[in-house]
Amino acid sequence: MNLQTLFQDFNPSKFVVHTCLLTFTILFALKLDENINWSYWTIFSPIWIWKALVISGATVGSYVWWRYPHFRLEGEAYIHYKSMLISLALHLILLMFELLVCDKLESSRHLWILVFIPLIFISIVSIAICIWAVKHDRSFELELFCAVNILQFIFLALRLDGFIGWSWEVVFVPLWIVMCLSLVGVLYTIIFAAILLRTPEVSAQQKRSSFHSALGYTFLVIPILIFQVLLANKLDEDIRISYTAVVSPLFISFVTLILMSFSAKGANKWWFGIRKDFCSFILGACPLLQEYGNIAYHTERRPNGVELEQQSEKQNTHIKKADLMKPVLPIISIEMPD
């Protein structure tokens, strides 16, 4: 285990987001099953923590940006800073949606279609943001999720308000389409990984990377599909299980996303004004960790003194045998006449 190798590709933003979503999912399922009696404002506390970190990180990053103008000349500083501002704007609109959801669950004084308006607006804007992100080689997971699910958000709002009486299996049709495409992608990664494993010209590192990618996407997509099937049957009252059991496959997906955040790379360097990789920042802020960051631990068993002597004897024996097998050439003296 090498501490520096473990954290050099670590993406702290994705780690925080997926951890908060996992905690929120657990609390929300327990609330629906009436195992806890907390208010929805408390149930949404992981979401509030997530948004508080986003706002504080963007505030500190903006302060560093305007306080130290020479930092703007570092590489792709402008692109990173614009990406941070775009992400902040999306999170603020998403925060509005979450506040309306929480208020609706507590008081029921709004229509769901009004609650979903900020989310639908995000979905429309996310299309342009995805194009900008592809052009500047930036990650856009949240934006892509919102852009491809705009029709799903509309169906959910209309179904919750009772304007349409479709079954939940029909309401989830846009999501079924997205999941089918995701399954095709998972099948492609599995086939690609299998081909690389049987190709001798490919390096071991590439084989390992493709295998881990196929394994990660499998444990990400399949549990989500199982959760969607259970949720549709639960809402249509075709099965009688608790909401905790319904969302349990999501725990596997969130744990997979948390593990994948350690090799996600691509973190924005302007959150909290860090301006460097998270691993380099942590090692610089905590010099005591530098000693542990330069230590690698191996699980291989080292030979003891007796084994070393046996190995040296075997080597000497092989050397002697090799000497005995060498051909002996006679030395012939040739005298030249005077």
Rank of each mutant, 00 (worst) to 15 (best):
I274M: 14
L230Y: 13
F251W: 15
I241S: 02
I239T: 02
M260R: 15
T244W: 07
W271K: 00
F251H: 11
F251K: 03
M260I: 11
M260Q: 11
F281N: 01
S263P: 02
F262E: 05
I224N: 06
R275V: 00
W270G: 03
A267M: 08
L257I: 04
Y243S: 01
S253G: 15
W271H: 07
P223N: 10
R240S: 14
L257C: 13
F254G: 05
R275D: 01
S242I: 04
V255P: 00
D236P: 02
V247Q: 05
I226P: 00
F281P: 00
K234M: 05
K234L: 05
K234G: 00
P223K: 09
S261N: 03
I224S: 08
Y243L: 08
F227P: 02
S261C: 07
Q228E: 13
V246D: 01
F251N: 07
C279T: 00
R240W: 10
L235E: 00
P223T: 07
N268E: 04
V247H: 07
E237K: 11
L235T: 01
N233L: 13
K276Q: 14
P249M: 06
P249F: 11
V246W: 09
C279S: 09
F278P: 05
F278I: 12
C279I: 04
L231T: 10
A232P: 00
A232W: 02
S263D: 10
L250N: 01
V255F: 15
Q228A: 14
F254E: 06
E237N: 13
A264S: 14
A264W: 14
I241Y: 05
W271G: 00
D236Q: 04
D236N: 09
Q228R: 01
I241L: 12
I258D: 06
F227G: 04
I274D: 02
L250A: 11
I258E: 03
W270T: 12
K265A: 10
T256W: 10
L230F: 15
A264D: 15
A264R: 11
V229M: 08
S280A: 15
K269T: 13
L230D: 03
I239Y: 03
N268T: 06
D238W: 13
S242E: 07
V247A: 10
A245L: 14
D236W: 10
S280M: 08
I282F: 11
K265T: 09
I252L: 15
F272D: 08
L257N: 04
T244Y: 09
F262Y: 15
W270L: 06
